[in-house]
Design a protein around this nucleic acid. Structure first.
Lengths: 159, 159
DNA sequence: CTCTATGTGGACTATTATAGTCCACATTGA
DNA sequence: TCAATGTGGACTATAATAGTCCACATAGAG
């Protein structure tokens, strides 16, 4: 009796936006689509295809981050604590994943012990600012509008 | 006798360019700075502050990827297999880390099982193209020139 | 006032990615 | 033929991500 292990070459991808962030954004979009209503974690989990227990952790983070408000007890739930146009993608990504950087060289002069002789960092820094700038221009309102329009391309995001 | 575990709140950062990629870029820059010479992994490791054994793996990947050539045996070493202006950052990053994407939604219509109702992806796609576009415009030559100029800011990268 | 549906917080596990190491072997120039 | 080199595969260690579990706090309805 043999056990054969086959290692399938996978098309690896390095994702900037992690699953937890995606889940968080789905939750925010869902809340924005139900203004003035308190929505339970269970409902969001169901509607947005997110594991409930994990979503609860994510909602807690969003609550502490000030993006959503929570109401405990029976008939409780979550609601947006800001207007959709006041929430941008960069804030959400950084709340969920930590500060977004190209690499350590930008964490200050001592982020990398080669810093004094590192000359690559100016390129990194420039790109980093572009990415952050772009992400911070996309608001929850933009996302929600695309949802309402049926998600067709062409809506466009400025920048 | 007590054991006290203190959990220090760390300033987390999510880095797009991983250490292996940074190491790979350092190696390429080093090779570009020594044209016409075969440089050993040991020398690069020493000069660029990279663990030798790990660097060897990275150089193997760069070799298979066609960016560097290798010469075995005594007096062997590595050399650039392309001109520095023919190597761009995006290629190197994707060789080392896999394809760079915002998230799974862009891996094709089945990348995410919500794809049919997912409307966020057009934003992602647009940003993804911007990042890739920018990274693909930065060549190894740009990096090397900045090294030669002493690494002062202001050199600038077009885009 | 109590029951029940909710959110909260912390600890816990599982899985995957990243980082790094080790060693036998192939190659090649002196 | 020896010594310095790269190659390839297996291996370990650490960290990040993803996900789960449970005791507890809270608040509305009856």
């Amino acid at each position: 009796m043999w056990t054969i292990i086959v290692h399938i070459e996978d098309g690896v991808t390095m994702e900037i936006i992690r699953r937890k962030t995606e889940y968080g954004i789905r939750a925010l979009v869902h809340l924005a689509l139900h203004p003035g209503k308190e929505v339970t974690a269970a409902e969001i989990a169901e509607e947005q295809d997110v594991p409930l227990e994990y979503l609860q952790k994510i909602l807690q983070k969003l609550t502490r981050g000030g993006f959503v408000g929570a109401h405990r007890g029976a008939y409780g739930g979550f609601y947006l604590a800001k207007n959709p146009e006041e929430i941008n993608l960069l804030e959400v990504i950084e709340l969920m994943q930590g500060k977004l950087a190209m690499n350590k060289c930008f964490l200050g002069k001592d982020g990398c012990n080669r810093a004094p002789k590192c000359v690559l960092k100016y390129n990194w820094l420039q790109l980093e600012q572009r990415i952050s700038g772009f992400l911070s221009q996309i608001t929850l309102l933009d996302l929600v509008e695309q949802v309402r329009e049926g998600g067709l391309p062409g809506g466009g995001v400025k920048g």
